[in-house]
Design a protein around this nucleic acid. Structure first.
Lengths: 274, 274
DNA sequence: ATGAAAATGGAATAAAAATTCCATTCATCG
DNA sequence: CGATGAATGGAATTTTTATTCCATTTTCAT
């Protein structure tokens, strides 16, 4: 049953997987999907565990292995166990290796950003004020409509929030500035706004937030410091500070805060509707 | 036979090993020596293999495991397998548990997302293929024009890339789907595309990438697994897998990869222009 | 609709691995 | 030097895991 085309390296394996997974029946595709996303578990798991993870019978997983060119699961696992040793060194070492591959190589840069992201996340977890966060969730969960504003560097955050709200069926509009239409008309009394901006703060965001505030509407601000101009208009401020790499700043912490906010709002609304 | 002092972490294990290996009989010391030097193999080997490596009978290795406090080899191996798999806890289950214990407060949720983000970043650092990344940077740095495509969950990434390129004066257009205009007209021969999509893959992205590829243009894909449909069109694939929290997935790793890519391209172009 | 082919689930079987047991060897002390 | 207990090797046993087989369901073309 052994097929001479059995992959002998991770690269070959991935390639093979991509190549044939399109034309696979349902269950086998489930296997492919699960394996693609959990490649690192293969070396240390049993067929039973993996097939359960993929939501499939062991026999189906068996067929999957054979389709890839292995004689069975054992042979496939052997390949992963052999390449396992290289993956073992811990995270710190791996990061070192990435860095060492040349100070200004893409992978070294990636290592920098990964590290910056981790630091930012740690910082976020310890610095966020649980009370303010909860208050923001309460206010937003009760909103008839949520307006999301954020330009330039804040725009990815705004659009991500918009996507999350859409998925959870929460009424929200993203003010994206397309067509330079005046967005104020869409804002009604009682609506709530999420304003996102970082230094150098964009005037449009501040203006729109100030307008909403002027109507007496609550504004939740996601911003970088406590001295942000959004503070002045008495917005409920959630401060996030990102560690930067050179002149560049990633958004790991900000996005994590945003998605948490969105999911918490969704959860709260669900509870309220029961 | 189970000993309550069985180590539950790598640190405890090493400590225990050092502590008792001095007062061991010959064969068992051989085991200790071998294990200390090949800790990484324990998770993926059998007793037979390990005992042979240590130059010892399987039964001797068995006694060694018991001396360390485990009930047998299986239990010891389990510890190592879990330590390795620890990075991939089942978040769905954990979130369930959190809920059950009434700890689904916004800050608990945030903590989950922060943790998920950290794990995703670690995984990114270890799983990214330095060669592919470098190749992507080379191709993109040489592009006369970069087209960025990504909808829904991928849109924040696309817009962030667009922002970064703008800041670095790199010619790039974001295909955002506004006005449902046909974006194909803007793509010229020789341009390079960055296509971003995650399961469930959005057809528009795939179609546009396929069109670009049809022109003979290179396509760099940022996607979630090796089974992504973008593989089919022979795109240069950068795979990122994010750890998710319940049904939700943050973008920490993906954005870190994106910003690294952008900055690396900028740096390379600068060097070329000097 | 109907039959053929493909896919699937689950139990039965085979293989492999872990664990135990005991006869033998080795070291130690009177 | 011989007795005693610890240490060891190897085979027997048990447990776990992989693999196969076949009855049943699903899919698809006619």
């Amino acid at each position: 049953m052994t097929d001479q085309t059995a992959p002998v390296s991770l690269e070959e394996f991935n390639h093979r997987l991509a190549e044939i997974s399109e034309a696979m029946p349902k269950r086998l595709r489930q296997c492919a999907e699960f394996v693609a996303q959990n490649t690192d578990r293969i070396a240390v798991s049993t067929v039973a565990e993996l097939s359960a993870g993929a939501g499939v019978q062991p026999s189906a997983f068996m067929r999957f292995c054979q389709l890839l060119g292995f004689s069975g699961f054992s042979e496939m696992q052997k390949m992963f166990r052999e390449t396992y040793a290289q993956k073992w060194p811990d995270y710190a070492t791996r990061l070192e290796n990435l860095r060492a591959s040349g100070a200004d190589s893409p992978s070294a840069l990636l290592a920098e950003f990964v590290e910056a992201g981790r630091l930012s996340l740690e910082n976020l977890a310890s610095s966020i004020d649980a009370g303010s966060l909860e208050e923001a969730v309460d206010v937003l969960a009760a909103a008839p409509m949520i307006h999301i504003v954020g330009f330039r560097r804040a725009f990815p955050v705004a659009s991500y929030l918009s996507y999350a709200f859409e998925k959870m069926d929460i009424p929200a509009v993203l003010h994206d500035g397309v067509g330079k239409l005046n967005p104020r008309h869409a804002i009604r009394k009682g609506d709530v706004m999420i304003a996102i901006t970082f230094a150098p703060y964009s005037q449009e965001t501040i203006d729109l937030a100030a307008y909403a505030r002027g109507l007496g509407n609550p504004v939740v601000a996601i911003t970088d410091t406590m001295t942000s101009p959004l503070r002045r208009i008495d917005a409920l401020t959630l401060a996030v500070s990102e560690v930067d790499v050179g002149a560049f700043r990633a958004l790991s912490a900000t996005l994590s805060l945003a998605i948490s906010l969105a999911v918490a709002i969704g959860a709260k609304r669900d509870r309220a509707n029961e």
